[in-house]
Amino acid sequence: MLSWLANKTTPLSHIVQEFNQSAAPAGTVKAADCPFLVIDLELTGLNAKQDHIVSLGWVPVRQFEIILSEARHYLVHSPVSVGQSAVYHGLHDKDFSQARDLADVLTELMQAYAGYIFVAHHCQLDLRFLEVACQRIFGKAAKFSFIDTLNIELYRLHKQGIVMKQDALRLPHCLVRHKLPHSDQHHALADAYSCALLLLSQLKHSHPEITLADLQLQSR
């Protein structure tokens, strides 16, 4: 059991509080010098207040390098059956015998990657689920700083005068457009890794001095 659970005098919210107090890079910092954590979630549905996280995958990117030695993938205990969501992520109730508690996984995430810029493809969904989960578990919302590779891709295409259907912004289609390996199979770690590849390709096609503020502007 985690030490913070054993210590009844320590409020659970201190994990989120310490995470929130860690300084993220300033907007003027070059993207090359920013530590990123690319993350993906698999879910039982799309409503953060009613549905649940069933797996998380993440991979750090530092100095434009994917740090595979720190890549992680966890199955997470869900209070409900995965039900029909198994059609999308391929996980079934029988697969969760060795799953971890979400509190443990989020604690590891926030303690190891405080001060990182989080990255996801269509990040609003991941952000909402993480915020709700932290509020439920720790009694306090975490201040995750996200950039969105989907919006960056949309910005990039608009700047080139290219108009595409919304479906063309799905991660597999973006990977094809950037001539990167792709798969239509949903897997949290595989999707996080693919998103990291996309981020690096997007940065490669940007100007060398691009800053975090530039990325945040493109990501809106």
Results as ranks from 00 to 15, higher is better:
207 H>A: 05
140 K>A: 12
65 E>R: 14
211 T>P: 03
180 L>H: 12
158 H>Q: 15
66 I>L: 06
150 L>N: 05
122 H>N: 12
156 R>L: 09
26 A>M: 10
205 H>C: 00
183 S>D: 14
196 A>N: 04
7 N>H: 12
180 L>S: 03
146 F>P: 02
181 P>A: 02
154 L>P: 00
108 E>V: 00
65 E>M: 06
183 S>W: 04
218 Q>K: 12
161 G>H: 01
111 Q>P: 12
28 T>D: 13
161 G>A: 05
38 V>Y: 08
87 V>D: 15
141 A>P: 04
82 V>A: 07
163 V>Q: 12
213 A>M: 09
116 Y>L: 01
3 S>F: 03
168 A>E: 14
37 L>A: 04
126 D>K: 09
64 F>N: 15
82 V>W: 11
68 L>N: 06
72 R>G: 02
157 L>V: 00
55 S>V: 01
62 R>H: 13
93 D>H: 09
97 S>L: 13
197 L>W: 13
161 G>D: 03
31 A>G: 10
116 Y>S: 08
195 C>V: 01
184 D>G: 05
179 K>T: 09
75 L>W: 11
6 A>N: 13
138 F>G: 04
38 V>T: 08
117 I>N: 06
54 V>A: 12
15 I>K: 10
41 L>D: 10
40 D>Y: 06
111 Q>V: 13
110 M>A: 03
60 P>D: 08
9 T>F: 14
82 V>E: 11
122 H>G: 07
176 V>S: 01
159 K>Q: 14
44 T>I: 04
181 P>G: 09
6 A>E: 15
17 Q>C: 05
198 L>W: 09
38 V>R: 09
189 L>E: 04
143 K>A: 13
149 T>S: 01
33 D>M: 11
11 P>L: 07
63 Q>N: 14
67 I>K: 14
199 L>F: 13
59 V>Y: 07
37 L>P: 06
193 Y>L: 15
3 S>M: 07
89 H>C: 11
192 A>Y: 08
136 R>N: 14
99 A>V: 07
166 Q>L: 15
78 S>W: 05
15 I>W: 06
200 L>R: 09
172 P>Q: 12
124 Q>N: 13
209 E>Y: 03
55 S>L: 12
143 K>M: 07
212 L>M: 09
84 Q>M: 11
31 A>M: 09
61 V>Q: 07
140 K>F: 11
30 K>S: 15
97 S>P: 01
212 L>H: 04
216 Q>Y: 10
191 D>G: 00
14 H>R: 14
17 Q>R: 13
219 S>R: 03
108 E>P: 00
76 V>R: 13
60 P>V: 06
35 P>C: 10
188 A>E: 11
85 S>P: 05
129 F>M: 01
3 S>Q: 15
72 R>A: 02
67 I>F: 06
64 F>V: 00
216 Q>I: 12
93 D>L: 06
20 N>C: 02
144 F>K: 10
67 I>P: 08
34 C>E: 02
159 K>I: 03
9 T>V: 12
171 L>G: 05
189 L>P: 02
142 A>P: 05
133 A>F: 02
